[in-house]
């Protein structure tokens, strides 16, 4: 039990997928302009990441390893992720048209969110079991959503702040992200 809690804490804080592993930076920058979109994106990514790490674990364990075709890992993972994203899009479109409209292009773009493939590959690399994979994916997604929401909240403040002209826009956003990343380095050593 403690081990699972550790996985969660480790993925959410210590090895945060965005600020420590630097994966999934494009949605981090792209969808963080408004708090609501950031939350929606966080929810959708959480759903996709958890589901895709479970399904890629199963593909790896029950298809690739028994048939001895591990060299097809990347392509089959991408395959599964694309399907999961498409599936999510269908479900969101049906269940919440407003969220669907808010997320817009970013929903299909989860496919190319490198965090999703990154988590699936990291799961294999670290030899995670079924529950561990699911928790790792879920934790990474929670960490992603958390920093996305924090960052969006900061950017909403920055938008009205008196930023010097050369730093306006993307520049100050990147500087903020860098400072956040440095702050998250403070968690290093919390879990071994």
């Amino acid at each position: 039990m403690a081990e699972y809690a550790l996985i969660l804490i480790s993925t959410i804080l210590v090895n945060n997928i965005v600020l420590v592993k630097f994966l999934g930076l494009c949605p981090f920058m792209g969808v963080s302009r408004k708090l609501e979109t950031a939350m929606g994106m966080g929810l959708a990514t959480t759903f996709v990441l958890t589901l895709s790490s479970i399904s890629s674990y199963m593909i790896n364990e029950f298809l690739l390893i028994p048939l001895n075709i591990e060299f097809l890992r990347t392509i089959s993972f991408i395959f599964v992720i694309a399907v999961v994203v498409q599936f999510t899009e269908l479900v969101v479109h049906k269940t919440s048209p407003i969220l669907y409209q808010v997320l817009g292009i970013f929903l299909p773009l989860i496919t190319t969110n490198c965090a999703v493939l990154g988590v699936a590959l990291l799961n294999v690399q670290e030899g995670h079991g079924f529950l561990e994979s699911a928790l790792y994916g879920f934790g990474a997604a929670v960490g992603f959503s958390m920093v996305l929401v924090i960052f969006a909240a900061m950017r909403e403040r920055i938008a009205v702040a008196d930023v010097p002209v050369p730093f306006q826009g993307a520049a100050i956003a990147l500087i903020t992200a860098g400072l956040m990343s440095m702050a998250f380095m403070g968690f290093a050593g919390l879990v071994k």
């Binding site: 298809l63 048939l67 075709i69 097809l72 392509i75 089959s76 395959f79």
Partner: peptide, 11 residues
């Protein structure tokens, strides 16, 4: 051949 069949089935 296994690889091709496996990917096709997966698809």
């Amino acid at each position: 051949l296994t690889a091709i069949i496996a990917i096709t089935l997966l698809a």
